[in-house]
Every structure is written in structure tokens, then in C-alpha cells.
């Protein structure tokens, strides 16, 4: 781990992203602010259109943000040139959702995992790189014998392990896992969740886990950030958010999760309607059009985050009243 710095590993400050389209500007992210502490496993939760994937890509500048800053270990990465960015990308990696389309079908596993080593000049020759690749495959629960195979010879869970090995190859400090278990069957999903936890513990990695499934995030992550229509609705320690959700959206999201435990089942609160179009988000609080507690004032001003406890915040005007 990097010992020289203090403070959060990643600070996201007022991040915004607007995509111009022929139908007008799509406001994918607005004024997103939160910190990612070193060595934490933080979950980013939201439904379709919440902006969670865009946010993950903005952090790596795979998508250029249109407002705000991302500060990684003291460096404003939104201000970096291409060269600076390449050096920085060695320290941050991403694992994608679909283990089928994110691995080149014509490449052997040796090449897929080893490519990043070559790109970043790690390992002096092929033998050294092969040794590193073998070690990585074993670390993610595969075997060194798998090096000569092609992606189609592996199951979905194994491919996701390959994606993780590839991300680890450059020894990053920070990994973004974008819906990395969503395409997997639940029994295999559990294998990957356990692996991510092990990697965090063993390597001291910081992981941003992006998911639509709140129960997976609650299980895996120490902290969570709930996004709705491009804005942060709530942030806090997972346990606190789960037990005492402050934002009406988080409450609705929690109560919508189908549960196998009849005692854990909350009084079902079903949200009416759909997520509004990001082409014309509602004024004020973006959730107010579906919120059972909305009042006129909610339309006037974008709510600031209010504290529930020192680390638990919710952006709701009526927090405490409802």
C-alpha cells in the first residue's frame, strides 16, 4: 500500500457529466461528491439511468467529466494530460460486467492477462511475465495450466476471474468493479464476491463496487453511495444505510428487494411510475415525482446532503420529518 499519503484515496468533488444528444442535453451526473477511503470496499448503487456506470468511467476518464474534479491520491486526474493519465491508469483498473464480451476471443489467457504487463513495462522477458501471469491466475482461483487456453473454454465465473487477474496485473491500488457479478448465477456470484473480499484483505486494495443489487452491496461493502437520476441520494456505512435509510428513495429501494425471509420483509412500499427522463429531470429534488412525501418546497431547490450521523448523509429536504 502507498504509505506516503493520508486522507481519502479518491475524492469526487462536484462531478458532472452532460451528454449532448440530438434531443437535447442528457444530464447523466450532477454535482456528485463523496470520498473513497483507502482500503475500503465501497458500493455504488442505483437503477438504470442512475449514472452509476458513467460515474465509474469518469473516475478513470474513460468518459470525460464536464464538471467537477476527481482527485486520486492528491492528484487532480481531471487535469492530467494523456501521458500523466497513462501513468495514473496503472494505479486504477476496471473490471466489466460481461465476462463474455470483455475478453478478446482470439487471444490466449497468457496474452489477455500479460498484455497489460507489456503495456506498462512490467517483467523483463516473456518468462518473467509468464511467471507473473501464473501467479495471478492462482491468486484468483484458476490454475497456471490455464494460460494456453482461450476464453471460450471457460465458464462465466471463470472468465470473470480472468478479468480480475488482468486488472490485478499492473498491481493497481484502486479497482472499479462495474456490475461484475450481475451476469453470473447466484452460486457463482458468491465465489466472486468472496474473491473480491479476499483481494481487498490480502492486497489492501480499494474497491468501488458498482451494482444495481442493494443486497449484494450491503453484504460486500463497508460503505455505500445511492444514486438516483445522476445525483447522490444517500451515503454512509452500509449497515447504517441498510438499517436506517434516511432518503425516501433508499427506503423504497430496500423495500422493493424480494426477500426470502418473511420476518425480514418490510411493509412493502411500492413506488409509482418510472424514473423520469434525464433529458428533462424534475426541478429541485429529482426524486420528488415518485416520492410519497414530496411537498411543494421539494420542487424549488436541489436538497443539500443532511447528516444523519457523522458519516451518514441523505439529500432530503424533509429528513427528520418523515
Amino acid at each position: 500500500m502507498n504509505a506516503r499519503s493520508e486522507g481519502p484515496l479518491v475524492s469526487i468533488e462536484g462531478l458532472g457529466k452532460t451528454f449532448p444528444t440530438s434531443a437535447g442535453d442528457v444530464q447523466a451526473l450532477s454535482d456528485v461528491t463523496f470520498n473513497i477511503e483507502r482500503g475500503s470496499l465501497i458500493g455504488l448503487v442505483g437503477e438504470s439511468g442512475s449514472g452509476k456506470t458513467t460515474l465509474g468511467r469518469c473516475l478513470l476518464r474513460l468518459v470525460e467529466p464536464t464538471a467537477g474534479r476527481v482527485v486520486f491520491d492528491g492528484t487532480d486526474i481531471t487535469a492530467l494530460d494523456q501521458r500523466g493519465l497513462k501513468a495514473m491508469r496503472k494505479r486504477m483498473q476496471i473490471i466489466f460486467q460481461d465476462p463474455f464480451s470483455s475478453l478478446n476471443p482470439r487471444m490466449r489467457i497468457r496474452q489477455i492477462v500479460g498484455e497489460a504487463l507489456v503495456a506498462h513495462g512490467i517483467g523483463r522477458n516473456r518468462r518473467e511475465r509468464d511467471d507473473i501471469v501464473a501467479g495471478l491466475l492462482e491468486e484468483v482461483g484458476l490454475s497456471a495450466d490455464h494460460m494456453g487456453r482461450f476464453p471460450h473454454e471457460f465458464s462465466g465465473g471463470q472468465r470473470q476471474r480472468i478479468g480480475i487477474a488482468r486488472a490485478l496485473a499492473v498491481e493497481p491500488e484502486f479497482i472499479i468493479a462495474d456490475e461484475s457479478v450481475s451476469a453470473l448465477d447466484v452460486s457463482v456470484q458468491a465465489q466472486i464476491l468472496n474473491l473480491l473480499q479476499d483481494l481487498r484483505d490480502r492486497r489492501g486494495l480499494t474497491i468501488l463496487f458498482i451494482a444495481h443489487d442493494l443486497s449484494v452491496v450491503e453484504y460486500l461493502c463497508d460503505e455505500m453511495v445511492v444514486l438516483y437520476l445522476g445525483r447522490v441520494a444517500e451515503t454512509g456505512p452500509s449497515d447504517d444505510v441498510y438499517r436506517l435509510p434516511g432518503h425516501p428513495y433508499t427506503r423504497a429501494l430496500l423495500s422493493a428487494i424480494p426477500t426470502i425471509d418473511p420476518e425480514g420483509r418490510q411493509a412493502r412500499q411500492i413506488l409509482a411510475g418510472d424514473i423520469p427522463s434525464p433529458l428533462s429531470p424534475p426541478s429541485g429534488c429529482v426524486f420528488r415525482t415518485r416520492c410519497p412525501h414530496a411537498i411543494d418546497a421539494c420542487a424549488e431547490k436541489v436538497p443539500e446532503p443532511h447528516s444523519i450521523s457523522s458519516r451518514h448523509h441523505a439529500a432530503c429536504l424533509r429528513l427528520g420529518e418523515i
Binding site: 437503477e47 444495481h212 442493494l214 423495500s255 422493493a256 428487494i257 424480494p258 412493502r268 411500492i270 413506488l271
Partner: peptide, 9 residues
């Protein structure tokens, strides 16, 4: 999405 799933169920 899970909130829509709840409506449909």
C-alpha cells in the same frame, strides 16, 4: 429495475 419489478409482481 427492482422498484419496477416490485410493481409488476
Amino acid at each position: 429495475d427492482v422498484t419496477i419489478q416490485a410493481q409488476i409482481l
